Simulated assay, not measured.
Amino acid sequence: MIIRKLFKFEGAHIVRNCSSQQCRENIHGHSYIVEVFIRSDKLDRGCMVMDFSLLDKVKMFIESFDHTYSLWKGEAEELKHFIYKYNRRVAEFPLSPSAEGFALIFLYVIDLILKNTRFENGEGNIEVSSVRVHETATGYAEAFREDLQEVHFSVRDIHFSPGITEQWKTADWWEKLINA
């Protein structure tokens, strides 16, 4: 069985090396919708795949991108310096912040979060099935479990500015995930 949880965030980026001149040369933003699909081979004692309250770290992770500039690690140092100087909320990661890049990073991190979540209500084998990232009302990208083979980075390559980490309800959750 599969369940779906929807999240939203507002964010800005530049998508370097894409075909569209407007996207690759200009800072611009989107109202993102993120759908997380989770599957299990059985239902828990509450007759659920899992209780949505167990997605608290997934929620915190996705909310880290709200009103945040998503910065590609390969961006020019001059722009990186500018972004960090004038923005309190910056998420820097190793993929271009396209919808596809977001979907793959979210899939990867959510998979790690779920692998490190303690399930105590008779849940089955819980795993993220896919993550769908809507960048516009008419288009989305979806990353599936088999796309995890395309991950050539680690959670250590994802960095959040203090303007983000200071707002986390559980301050050490990211460090625990990195060291898991």
Score class of each variant (00 low, 15 high):
47 C>Q: 14
37 F>H: 15
16 R>M: 10
26 N>S: 06
26 N>V: 02
29 G>K: 12
28 H>R: 10
15 V>N: 07
6 L>N: 14
35 E>R: 11
15 V>T: 12
39 R>Y: 05
54 L>Y: 08
24 R>T: 09
6 L>F: 10
22 Q>A: 11
51 D>R: 02
56 D>I: 06
56 D>E: 13
27 I>K: 12
10 E>S: 15
45 R>Q: 15
32 Y>V: 01
9 F>E: 03
48 M>R: 06
39 R>E: 15
39 R>C: 04
47 C>W: 05
35 E>F: 08
52 F>A: 13
46 G>H: 14
50 M>E: 01
15 V>K: 09
17 N>P: 00
47 C>M: 09
21 Q>D: 12
50 M>G: 01
4 R>L: 08
48 M>N: 07
22 Q>N: 09
6 L>P: 03
9 F>S: 03
25 E>Q: 10
14 I>K: 07
38 I>S: 00
24 R>I: 05
17 N>I: 06
17 N>W: 10
33 I>Q: 14
23 C>T: 07
29 G>H: 13
9 F>W: 12
12 A>L: 09
6 L>Y: 09
21 Q>K: 10
33 I>F: 10
5 K>S: 05
13 H>F: 12
55 L>S: 00
52 F>D: 06
37 F>L: 13
30 H>D: 03
10 E>D: 14
23 C>L: 10
25 E>L: 13
54 L>M: 06
50 M>H: 00
48 M>H: 01
23 C>P: 06
3 I>V: 14
17 N>V: 05
16 R>S: 11
11 G>P: 04
38 I>T: 03
17 N>R: 15
7 F>A: 01
10 E>G: 04
51 D>K: 03
13 H>A: 01
5 K>R: 15
16 R>F: 13
48 M>V: 01
11 G>A: 15
31 S>L: 14
47 C>Y: 07
16 R>I: 10
43 L>E: 04
9 F>H: 12
31 S>Y: 11
21 Q>W: 08
48 M>L: 12
28 H>M: 11
17 N>T: 08
33 I>R: 15
3 I>D: 02
38 I>M: 08
39 R>I: 03
34 V>M: 05
32 Y>A: 00
54 L>V: 06
45 R>I: 15
22 Q>M: 11
31 S>F: 11
35 E>A: 09
6 L>G: 03
29 G>P: 04
54 L>R: 10
30 H>Q: 14
40 S>W: 01
44 D>G: 03
39 R>F: 02
52 F>Q: 06
49 V>M: 03
33 I>G: 06
7 F>S: 00
39 R>S: 10
31 S>G: 08
22 Q>W: 10
7 F>C: 03
11 G>N: 11
36 V>M: 05
50 M>S: 02
15 V>M: 14
51 D>S: 08
34 V>S: 01
46 G>K: 12
28 H>L: 11
32 Y>H: 02
14 I>P: 03
43 L>Q: 00
47 C>G: 08
26 N>W: 05
41 D>V: 07
30 H>C: 05
42 K>R: 11
41 D>S: 07
34 V>F: 09
53 S>V: 11
49 V>H: 02
38 I>Q: 00
13 H>P: 02
15 V>G: 00
4 R>T: 15
28 H>C: 04
38 I>W: 06
8 K>I: 05
7 F>G: 00
49 V>Y: 02
48 M>D: 04
